[in-house]
């Protein structure tokens, strides 16, 4: 058997069961709606979802535009929140007393349900994307901060001792030991931080916004367009998976030594 044949077989073995499962699931759903076991007002129906996607993703670009707003908001809050968190983490590792002092305040702030801040942020930053970015940042920041601190505190002490006996300057210690040693842990924080940035942005859009997938979702829900709601949930889930997929790829490239 050639390599290609084997690959094709393997592919078939993994894909076919899923295709069968999904086919049966969607078929039953469609059937149940058509014979009246399920109410399409509450559950939508696969054919309706498909035609919604067709109309809004392919015939018109309306959903792409909304997605653009959501993605822009997500990435902006991710980047801003992560940079702020990594810098703060560095500062805390260098100044443990500052961290001890600020810890109760940070803990209290982090304990607050972030969505509760939306009214405040909308007042400060307006209905547009800025207020959504602000929410995303407050979520990403704490996750990345705690992983940055954990990563830099959890260094292998042998590496630190060896490097000290070699007479390393602080900058060398940072570049050769602290940073590379902390990156795997920081990355697990970044991965989660990205998902939370999206959560914050979409959550904010649902509450009050002019644009974005969350805003569309809220609108479709309020007009009882269940096919549209289901389609958007599907899109959000695919978006979330794409985003984590990108992170996994970057992580694999960067941490190939693991």
């Amino acid at each position: 058997m050639s390599k290609n044949e084997r690959l094709a077989l393997e592919f078939g073995a993994t894909v076919i069961p899923h295709a069968v499962f999904l086919g049966v699931f969607l078929g039953l759903w469609e059937y149940a709606v058509r014979v009246g076991w399920l109410d399409s007002i509450f559950f939508g129906q696969p054919s309706g979802i498909a035609s919604f996607l067709w109309a809004n993703l392919i015939q018109s670009a309306s959903l792409w535009k909304e997605m653009g707003w959501t993605v822009f908001g997500t990435f902006s809050s991710f980047v801003l929140g992560s940079i702020a968190a990594i810098l703060t983490g560095l500062l805390f590792v260098m100044m443990p007393r500052l961290e001890r002092f600020l810890d109760p305040y940070l803990t209290a702030f982090n304990a607050m349900p972030r969505i509760a801040l939306v009214p405040l942020f909308i007042l400060w930053f307006g209905l547009g994307v800025a207020s959504k970015i602000a929410i995303g940042v407050t979520l990403t920041f704490f996750i990345v901060l705690s992983s940055t601190i954990a990563g830099m505190r959890g260094l292998n002490q042998d590496h630190v001792v060896l490097t000290r006996t070699l007479g390393a300057r602080p900058a060398q210690m940072f570049a050769y030991v602290t940073l590379p040693g902390a990156i795997p842990v920081i990355f697990s924080g970044l991965r989660l931080g990205l998902l939370y940035a999206m959560l914050g942005v979409v959550g904010g859009e649902i509450i009050a916004a002019e644009h974005g997938l969350g805003q569309s979702l809220a609108y479709l829900g309020s007009t009882f367009n269940m096919n549209g709601v289901m389609a958007l949930l599907l899109i959000l889930s695919v978006l979330g998976m794409t985003v984590t997929g990108i992170m996994t790829y970057v992580e694999k490239r960067l941490l190939h030594w693991q």
Partner: peptide, 28 residues
């Protein structure tokens, strides 16, 4: 500390896992 007339070696190898053998041998 850091006297370059001294080389120090521990029971555990202290190799940096993100460096290749050559890069580790170069580290000091």
């Amino acid at each position: 500390l850091g006297d370059d007339r001294i080389a120090y070696m521990l029971a555990r190898d202290s190799l940096l896992p993100w460096r290749t053998t050559l890069q580790n041998a170069c580290y000091g």
